[in-house]
Design a protein around this nucleic acid. Structure first.
Lengths: 225, 225
DNA sequence: GGAGGACCTGAGAGCACGCTGAGAGACGCG
DNA sequence: CGCGTCTCTCAGCGTGCTCTCAGGTCCTCC
């Protein structure tokens, strides 16, 4: 569990370092914003503890740069209550939590733990049915080694069916879940898209993962057909 | 809950081992791919945590071998973010989730729990009468290992009778429950469909699950005939 | 033993359901 | 502005399910 502490005041940095290490964290220290960004670029951190008042690029700047680069690592901001920045502003520029100095180490630890807990379930695992797989987070899917190229609607349909394997899902349910709850168009659209999907995930492989249950709906075979 | 951790770095392996044991898991450690495959072949694991960088057969190799052998145990890949493998490639060769080093133990635990939740069988209640079974959610039924192919009306009829085993159900009741409450056609339809059902679920097996109670209705034997 | 009623079953008509190809409209991109 | 992609509508078609009907069988009761 790796934590980056960005803090220019030596005594505070040392205290936090010692405390976190005692709690089993692996700690890196950066004295200014530039060094912090360099470290973040080359290492993965579970949490970043970031002082706002820094020489050179301040914490505000660092945090925005991070977020702009698409890095979603949880950031905990440390602010001195001197009025230059309102504490609540921290949340506006991409921080996940803030703490005003002076702070007790116990509180800091509790906040870090909370951030770790919060960021834990960010990614859902891959959905599978036999050799058919779909990664909702990466928005990719395939059969075995072969990647499948689906349109957004096709992808949504397959994802829903993979979340309900070996279960018959009705066409109205599919309309409500994959299209809108208030969908008013021709329900035949479901049949059309099931047809599209089959031509991509089943026909080329001589399989039949999606089965028609006449009068009821469709079922995705948990073994992939 | 048994977990296999395939990791050659002693300190990481030890840390994960300690952490998972503290959470109540039973943990095995394998230092390389060969040992991992041997352990997997002889033990059943709920989850496999697999480092990509291993001496000898790497994680990529292990994962593919596993899947080729038809082993579907959830696999969580650990990758060092050094660019040799794209993390998302893991999904292509059969992993269920991935985590880049360094990772926090809290995150690892959350991911393992998510995988376990997903692979946990969420059984819907299956109706049974002897070796005759019917799964309403999957809309499937069969006798023993043999699957039965029923039409929607036949399926509805069998489902209703399975929900009322060893009970005489009248023809008017069947008409109301399996057809419409306001059914106005020829009541003979029930006899016709009971006949269809018998020819599919009884005759081929030399059984008689559906008994006629003359003047009253029909009864499905709870032992399947 | 015969009559009547209850149940079974084969044949076939009708049609509902689901599948598919063609194409229109919306949208983004160069 | 033209092109390609995606979404959705529409209509035609074939399959096979549902149901009716009529004749046959079996049971029950007089």
């Amino acid at each position: 569990m790796r934590v980056l502490v960005v803090e220019d005041e030596q005594n505070i940095a040392a205290a936090v370092d010692r405390g976190l290490r005692a709690e089993g964290f692996s700690v890196d220290i950066a004295e200014d914003g530039e060094k912090a960004l360099g470290l973040i670029r080359h290492n993965g951190y579970a949490v970043i503890v970031l002082d706002l008042m820094l020489p050179g690029r301040n914490g505000y700047d660092v945090c925005r740069t991070l977020r702009a680069a698409g890095i979603t690592t949880p950031v905990l901001i440390l602010t001195a209550k001197d009025g230059e920045y309102d504490e609540a502003d921290a949340l506006d520029f991409g921080a996940d939590d803030y703490l005003t100095k002076p702070f007790s180490f116990v509180v800091l630890l509790a906040r870090i733990r909370a951030l770790l807990r919060r960021s834990a379930p960010q990614r859902s695992p891959v959905l599978r049915a036999g050799d058919l797989w779909l990664d909702p987070a990466a928005h990719r899917c395939g059969r075995g080694d072969e990647r499948l190229d689906l349109t957004p609607r096709e992808f949504g349909l397959l994802e829903f069916m993979l979340r309900n394997p070996d279960t018959v899902v009705s066409k109205t349910e599919l309309l409500a879940q994959v299209w809108d709850a208030w969908f008013e168009g021709d329900p035949n659209i479901v049949e059309v898209y099931v047809g599209y999907l089959r031509r991509k995930i089943d026909t080329p492989f001589g399989r039949s993962a999606i089965e028609t249950v006449r009068g009821i709906g469709y079922r995705l075979d948990a073994k992939g057909g």
